[in-house]
Structures are given as C-alpha cells and as structure tokens.
Design a protein around this nucleic acid. Structure first.
Lengths: 360, 360
DNA sequence: CACCTTTGTTGGATCGATTCAAATTTTGCT
DNA sequence: AGCAAAATTTGAATCGATCCAACAAAGGTG
C-alpha cells in the first residue's frame, strides 16, 4: 500500500527541476550530462532541486529519441524465449554475444513471442540498434520481418544463399567431410544420416529432389560433405537413408525407428547436431544397442554438453562462442556493408565412435 | 559495399511520407496504428508512398516517448552477462521469467556490465518498465542503484530486511531445517557448513559475530535453520565449522581443504547451494572420499543439474521457475504496492546422502 | 578605457511519433 | 435541395530530453 497517495501526480521532468532551480532547461540538462561545464554553485542548486522534487534522473526515453542510439542489440528467434536458456547451442552462442556486449557496455534484448503475429510486432517495436537472428526453423520469415526494420542485422548460420544479408557461419561441407571420413576410416560402410530440416515443417526420409531444392542450404551442405567423403571410400551414397528431423526428441526417435527397422541397419550414424546425436545415443542405449560397440555416432556443433554425455560424443566442433562474438561485433561496429564470414570447424574425437562390430 | 551511396541520406520519417501522400501527419500516423479509421483510398495512397520511399514503419523510438510503456522488463545482475546463460540457477529462473513474458508478449532486456561504473550507467539508461534483480553479491548496491530509477522492481531472494523493496524468495529457515534434520535422522553427528556469502568480499571460517551482523539475511537464515534442527538432535552447533564461500570453485575448494584438514572431519556437509554441493562432490570423489559412503552432502536450490550429477544430489528444492514467473508478473502487473512473497521449499532426497560410515 | 577572451547560461529547434478537439466532408433521409 | 448525423481529416500540442548558436558576464591586456 505504499505510495498510493502520490500515484496520481505525474512524474517529474527535467523542466520541472529547471524551473524549481531557476535555470533554463538547457542548463539543467547540462548538470546531468556534462556537469563539468556548469558553475559549481548552479550545479549544486540544480542537484538540490532534483533531490527535493524526487527527480529520478534524465529519462532514457527522452534521451533516446535525441541520441538515436539505443546501445543494445536484439537477439531474435522464432522459438519461445526460454530457448535462449535451455538450448546448449543457443547458450554457448549467447555466451559469446554476452562477452562482446560486456566489453562495450551494450545491453542485450531478447526478442521472441508466443505466436507469429506477436513476433512480427515485437521485431517491429524492439528498441535495439540491430539484430542477431537465430535462424532455426522459420528462418526466412524471420529474415524478412527483420529486413523491414532497416536496421543492421546478421544471421547466424548462413541459412540461405541470399547474398544481401550478413551472415556468420561455418564451413558445413568441410565439417561434414571430417565427420564422414572419420567414420569411414574406422572401417564403417553402412551409414544413416539424421538430418536437420531441409525446409520448414517437413520430416521423414528425404529424396534427392528434396535435397536439391532445400531451403536451408546449411543442411544441404552438410549432406553434400558427408556424401563427398563417403564416395571417396567407395560407399554407395544413394543407398544411405537420410531422415529429416526437427532437431527435437520426437522426430529424432521417429527417424531412428525408421532407420533401425531396416534389415541391414547402419553401423554408423551421422547426426547433423549434437542434440540429435545425444538423443540417438540415449535411444540406442535404451534398446541395448552399444555405442560405439554396435553403432558409432558422430554429432555436429560441439556444444559443451557433448563432452559430458555417456559415452562422450565425437563431434564436429564449431567455434560457437567466436561466432557469437563476431556477430555482436558486426552489429556494434556496423559500417553499412554486408559481411559474410565462414569459420573453420574441427573434429573432436571422443568415445562415441569406434570401429564397426567384427561379425556382420 | 552495399548501400554506400544512400548512406548519407537520413532515414525517412513519418512526416516525409505524409507529405509525399498529400495528407496530414495525423492521418499518416493513423494508417499505421489504426488503419481501420482511415478511408481505404487514402490508406492505400499512404501505404504506396511509404513503399515508394522505403519507409521502415513508425520508429519505436518516437512511439516510445509518447506511449511511455516500453513493454520490456529488465533483468539485472552484478555478474557479467554470461551469468544468465551459464549458471543453472539463473537459467532456471530465466525460464520462469521467459514464460511469463512470452505469455504477455513482453520482451526481456539483460542488464549488466563489466565494471561497477558501467553497471550504474546501464541501469540508469535501460529502456524497461521495471527490473528484476538477481541479488548475488553486491546486491545492496544493485538495489540502491535501481531504486533511483523510481521504476517498479523486485528482488529475487529476500536478501535483506528492507521492507520497502518488493522481493520474492523462499523460506530459508524451513528449508535449512529440512536439510539438517534429514542428515541427523540418518545418524550423522559431525557436520560442516559450506555457506554462501554473509557479506561482500569476505570468505573463510565464520564467527558468530559475523553471522549476527550478516548483510545477507538469506544466508543467515539458512544457517539458523541448520543449527535449529541440529540442536534438536543434541548436536553442539558451536563446534560446527562454517566456511563462507563465494559460491564458486576456488573458495569452495579452499573451504573443503580447511574443513578436511581437521583431525575429526565431518561425515556430513550442509551446502548452501547446489553449485557448492556439486563442487564438493567432485572434490571429495577426486580424493577418494566416497559420497555418500564416507561423507553425505545435501545441497540447496534444486537446480536441474543436481539430478544429473554423480551421485545425484539430495537437495532442498526451491520452486525456481515459479519464483521467476511471479517476479515477472509482479513487474508486468505492477500496482504500486510493495509485494513480499515467501514460497515453500521441498526436500528432494537423492543419492548423495546416506547413513554415516560405521567405524569412526 | 576600449577590446578581446574565456567561461557560463539561455531558449529555440529537434528527435519521431501519437493524440484529440475542432474542422471538414460524406452520407442518409425527407 | 436542405439538414442533421456520421465518418474523415487536420494541425497543434505533447512526450522528455539534447544540442547549439547567440548572448551575457567576468577577466585580461595594451
């Protein structure tokens, strides 16, 4: 019940204290923004007036309009807000973004929403100097929405070929080659791929046609990398089942059901994300299929959790934090140019991959 | 090098398109904010003009000043920004906050900074409707800083006795009693406490004097709860070492060194956070001390990770997400009153606690 | 003492929108 | 056609600050 009596009085403005102190609003403003240029006696008088009236200091809302710069960068996704705190990949990325923001004193505004309509509104009304976009699914919509704000923005992962948008990602082809070569060198010849989305809203086994017309070229590139490397080992890539998941538990499990219903199940799984890989490990282990004894798995991303699961995951590690750092820098130091960066990846061999079982 | 030619032309304003379309700016504004009240013919004309000039839509910076509401809540801490994505407790809390924000379409602005000076500035200039404060260390400073903004704010964990600030926390005394009673009932009689900070910047063994003058009453209350319960079992609480940590690895390890240097080391450890407890488990295990065979440990908080460590941690679970949800609601539905809520906790028994070893 | 600096202060213009009472146009009806 | 009611449109006021050119006062110099 505190402060209910004074609740009808409207907040104190700078002009109010200027009047109270008997100075112009210009001087009053200076007292707060450049105190050194106003005479001490006056400065004290204004400060006293501010104190007496209970002035909260210059309202950033007012300052903002004049200054133009918000000094905050928006991070947007089509997922719910909690994605930023739950998903390991997002978290690692946010750590990198945080670091760059901490260094320059910029703030972070998280932008998302329950539904598409609100998302559009939230992007339109976000008070930020630029956006970093997490382009998971619905990435293209997100890009379109953001483009209309006419603010600098950068997409994480070069999701599409559109050269007009800044993007930071990794060399997916090279990374995928690394993963596939590793398994082939261990002796594997029967593979399955658990893929990320090629397009919005579809899941299931993927046809070459779908691959060719993939909306998400990152997914396609990884597949290309897998196949390139495997071809070099004489593997018939046409016979490899490629199951498109939504990078979640349900679709990954469905994919595994499909793949292992086969008469000749694979001895090695190429998973396009660590998330998928870890779900797969759990699924296989629960069914008594040994990893890597019976089936080897290689993930993609290199999230911190991957080192901690059982068995620890062999994976293609992206420099996630570095991507985040660069993305933030791109917005913070925006110079009007489109910037597309491709970073290198690294194969991290752990315990989820080994030679295929002897007897077939 | 895109768009370098047009970079010197200043952004299009609503007034520009009003002129171009030959209507007043009032009408132009209505086209965007209340399209239904303007005649279709005019509406189309204005939209066409906007399209032609490349207008990005009403600038939120301008709208904000008039509207007054930002529609975002600030979450502040004295830790670096990455704290929100690294710390399990913070993450669970943010998940609850996210949920409430998603539901109402509000945004989240993360506020922090590398140093104290920037922190002050960032709090003063954050564009938010209110704050949620993570009061770890330096909590009192954070509260003072925020209070000056004269915006609604709520402190997480009733860190201090100050009744003028809204706060949401748990019943620390009751929770601590639960933990201590559990261990006493298992037969333990020799205890040690790994505490959270009692005041800023101090660590080490704590004297009763320090406890009495504790800045953080949450820490004090937990200790009081521990001692109350143990006294009932005839344990001499005066002989229990209480080591103040900073809730991090270094100080916790130092505390363990101190505690286990004793001739009669404890058989049970009361840790005031899961973080501390998990660090302790790791430290003990690495030294060949079995948990719970040789030493039992009970944590506090109930972060998700606690269920996954080895052995799974017995702990006093706070309704973390619920606290977050309520905190967000408190800001979102602010009614001018001070609100202090105390939520219940629950003992979750897992494998880190068991009877003390037989032979002493 | 006139003149030039230096230092401080003033008040109008501006940032980009929304709002609302008043003015204007349309529509409906006889 | 005439007139009241309804539907649109206008333009000034406002939100809360910062910026800056112009001015005033004080200090220094020949």
């Amino acid at each position: 019940m505190a402060s209910s009596t004074e609740s009808n009085t409207r907040p104190i403005r700078l002009a109010d204290i200027a009047k109270a102190a008997g100075v112009s609003h210009g001087t009053a403003s200076n007292v707060f923004s450049r105190p050194e240029i106003v005479r001490e006696e006056v400065r004290e008088r204004v400060k006293a007036a501010a104190e007496a009236l209970g002035y909260a200091g210059p309202d950033p809302k007012g300052r903002l309009l004049r200054a133009g710069k918000v000094n905050a960068i928006g991070v947007a996704t089509t997922e719910p807000l909690s994605y930023f705190f739950d998903d390991p990949f997002a978290r690692a990325m946010m750590a990198g973004i945080s670091e760059a923001c901490d260094a320059t004193g910029a703030g972070i505004a998280l932008v998302s929403a329950g539904n598409q309509e609100k998302l559009a509104w939230n992007i339109q009304s976000a008070l930020v100097d630029g956006f970093i976009l997490f382009c998971i699914e619905g990435g293209s919509r997100l890009v379109e929405l953001t483009r209309e704000r006419k603010l600098p923005f950068v997409a994480l992962e070069l999701g599409f070929d559109d050269d007009t948008v800044s993007a930071i990602g990794v060399d997916n082809v090279a990374g995928a080659r690394l993963a596939a070569r590793h398994l082939a060198e261990l002796g594997h010849r029967r593979f399955a791929v658990l893929a990320l989305p090629f397009a919005d809203g579809s899941t299931g086994l993927v046809s070459p046609e779908q691959v060719r017309t993939a909306l998400y070229t990152g997914t396609r590139d990884r597949l290309v990398g897998y196949f390139e490397a495997l071809s070099q080992f004489g593997v018939d890539t046409a016979g490899i089942p490629v199951y498109e998941t939504e990078n979640d538990e349900a679709s990954t499990r469905a994919g595994l059901e499909t793949i292992f219903a086969s008469a000749e199940p694979p001895t090695a799984i190429l998973a396009m994300s660590d998330r998928i890989a870890m779900i797969a490990i759990e699924w296989l282990t629960a069914r008594g299929i040994a990893v890597p004894g019976d089936v080897s798995i290689v993930g993609f991303d290199g999230v911190p959790d991957a080192a901690l699961c059982d068995p620890p995951l062999t994976t293609v590690a992206q420099p996630i934090a570095e991507i985040g750092r660069r993305a933030a820098r791109t917005i913070l130091d925006f110079d009007g140019t489109v910037r597309r960066e491709t970073l290198g990846v690294e194969l991290v061999v752990r315990a989820s991959s080994g030679p295929p079982p002897k007897a077939v």
